[in-house]
Structure formats: structure tokens, C-alpha cells
Write a protein that binds this DNA or RNA. Structure first.
Lengths: 188, 188
DNA sequence: CGACCAAGGCTAATGAGGTTAGCTTTACAG
DNA sequence: CTGTAAAGCTAACCTCATTAGCCTTGGTCG
């Protein structure tokens, strides 16, 4: 049998393909093995089990989101940076609903590190905005909650009424950003 | 065989028991049938399949949350009512993390009606606050996003840092409520 | 060159879980 | 007392995940 050139990374690639085409529920070891042109048990030479595949996928997705956020926010500061940050997040979820859905239902501990990168970017933005320490943590939690909640509800089709979603999101961003605590140091 | 007195409702009761004790992943037809003292296939006399059980559970949970919200918000108005509404929601998720987790991963269409009740309560609050029409919809979406996002992240252990969560939630509520658009009609 | 050996594949088998088909029993109405 | 529909049951099948144990490949080193 010709070697299939598998690796944990390659398996995650295939899993993401499946997620994009069929949704998170389509990710079974048989499906992944099928795409790899390999018998199902062969996958166990590269990953511990299905749970690990899901965890690796989650980490990959989180990293992908963090990368986009870092790129697009680079060079911005203050309210502009926060707007951009929140926009990137929503855009990512809209463009990749399956991936985001797959991400938010995997193990905690392994995700902590990947999630930490995203929080770090946010904390950096808030620092540029004049927030440090506990204030920054509270603010970051508010931003994350709002963005995550909106993104999840939108992706799930939870907003049924025929009123423009972009407008709603604009308002949410304004609420959060203008509601940040006033600091002595005016933001850059 | 003595009749077991099953019904879709009774099945949902058992499923909720399992969710509370073992989490949403424990809800299998075998597990439900076991608690009912019945063979697995017997359940099919009352529900179409596992997916329907999950949908019914979601509807029940949504209704439960809506009931609590309506009760606790009754007689309040303005900012006070919105605070109470947001508090009830978070409290429910904290007290019933498994149920909420089970709810947010079921079919959309069947949930629409149950979810609508919750939105109606919120829209009523916002009307008392002076918001109508599209403004009210936008505001309701912001409130839902913030509350849902915070609740989900908290339940998933997504807030790792040792900073008080109650304080964060207070700030989030204030951000949202004080960020509501000003209306000509001052709220009651 | 050729033997070794580990990595990477494979088949077979087990067990959980969902689902269907078809038979049997219960409970109640007439 | 009997007929019938609802509510059980067993048997069987399918898909998946997972484990065990075997075979092959391909590179490394004598």
C-alpha cells in the first residue's frame, strides 16, 4: 500500500473540508479516512481518537481566527481598532459558520492556549485604549460576550425578524465601545 | 408487561434528569429507556427518533427560561426590568448549565416559537422603556447577544482569569442598558 | 548490497447506539 | 366477552469508534 502521507495536520485539513461541505456533524473517522484514501483504523496511527481530532480542529480554527484578527487590527488603535476587531470576528463566523460551530464544542484545557492568543490581542487593544488590569479584563469579557453571542445567534439563524443585521451589529459595537470605562489617559 | 405510562413529556422529563446528572452527552435512547424501565425500541411509540427528543428537550428548556423571566420581571419596568431580565437569564444558565448547553444545539424551526416567547418578553420590556419597531428589534438583539454570549462563555469555563465574574456582568449590563438609544418618551 | 525495524497500512472483531420490522399483550370500549 | 388500537417486546441491521494483531514499505546501517 502506497503511503498516504498522513499526519495530524493533514487529518485536520480533511476534517475542515468535511466541516465546510457538510457541517460539523459530518466529521466521522470513516469520512476522514475515506477522503484520505485509507481504512478507518489507520487514522489511529496519527491521532489518539475522534475526540483528539475535534480538539485539533478547534485549535486550528481558533488560531485561524486569531491570525486574522491580529493581521486586520495591526496598526489600528482606540475605538477604530475595537471596531475592526469585532468586525473581523463576526466576518469570520459568517464566512465559516461550520468551523466556528465545530470550535465551540470541544475540550476546554487544550483550547485555553489558543483562546489565550485571541484574548491577548484584545487586551493589547484595550491597553492602547487606556485600560489595564482588572478593568481591562472586565472590558475584554464584555467584548467577547457581545461578539460571541451575536455571532452564535446569527450563525444559528436565531435572528428571524426582517430587520437589518448589520445595523444591529453596529449598534452593539457602539454600545460596547462607548460603554467602556473612562480612563484618565485618553486613548491614542 | 405493565404499561410504563410513557409519553413525550415523560420522556423529556427523563432526558432532563440525565442532563442534570450526566450532562447532555448522556442523553441516549438506551439511557432514557433504562430509566423508563422499558426496552429501547419502545420509545419509538412516543417519539419519532433521538433528534425529536433533543428538540423537545430544547423547547422545554426554552419555555422554562421564558417562564422564569416572565415571573421575575413582572411588575418591573425600565432599567430595573432589564437588569432583572439579564440577571434571570444568567442565573438560569449558572443553575442549569447542562440544560442550557443541551438547548443551544437543537433544530431551529421547532425552537422558533419557544424562542419567540422570550423575545416577546424582552420586546415588552423595551417598549416600556420607550423603544418600538426596528429600534426595539436592534436593542433586543443586543441584549440577547450580550447575555447569551456571557452565559455561554461562563458555562463553558471560558473566563479563566481570577477576576470577579459578577463585576464583569454588572459592567456588561450597564454597557447595554445605558447604550440603548435615547427616546423622546422617557422610560417609566 | 542486503538485513533490520519502525512507521504506517490493513483486516477482523467487539461493542455502543439508533432504527426498523414484525409479533404479542394490555386495556378499554362496545 | 370480544375486538382493536396502543404500547410493549425481541430480533436484526447499520453506522461508528475502537482495539488487536498482522503485513509491507522504506529508509538506515552494517
Amino acid at each position: 500500500m502506497a503511503r498516504a502521507g498522513l499526519s495530524p495536520d493533514a487529518i485536520v485539513d480533511l476534517a475542515l473540508q468535511i466541516i465546510d461541505e457538510e457541517g460539523p456533524a459530518g466529521v466521522t473517522l470513516s469520512a476522514v479516512a475515506g477522503r484520505a484514501g485509507v481504512a478507518t483504523p489507520s487514522l489511529y496511527k496519527h491521532v489518539r481518537n475522534l475526540a483528539e481530532v475535534n480538539t485539533l480542529v478547534s485549535i486550528r480554527v481558533m488560531d485561524e481566527l486569531a491570525d486574522r484578527a491580529r493581521e486586520l487590527v495591526l496598526g489600528l488603535s482606540g475605538a477604530e481598532a475595537l471596531h475592526a476587531f469585532m468586525n473581523v470576528w463576526r466576518e469570520y463566523v459568517r464566512s465559516n459558520p461550520g468551523r466556528y460551530a465545530a470550535m465551540i464544542q470541544a475540550a476546554q484545557p487544550e483550547l485555553a492556549e489558543a483562546g489565550g492568543r485571541l484574548v491577548d490581542i484584545l487586551l493589547a487593544l484595550l491597553r492602547g485604549y487606556g485600560l489595564e488590569g482588572a478593568d481591562a479584563i472586565h472590558a475584554a469579557r464584555c467584548v467577547r460576550s457581545a461578539v460571541h453571542g451575536f455571532a452564535v445567534l446569527e450563525a444559528a439563524g436565531g435572528f428571524g425578524l426582517p430587520v437589518d443585521l448589520d445595523d444591529s451589529y453596529e449598534q452593539l459595537k457602539r454600545m460596547i465601545i462607548s460603554g467602556l470605562p473612562k480612563t484618565d489617559r485618553p486613548h491614542v
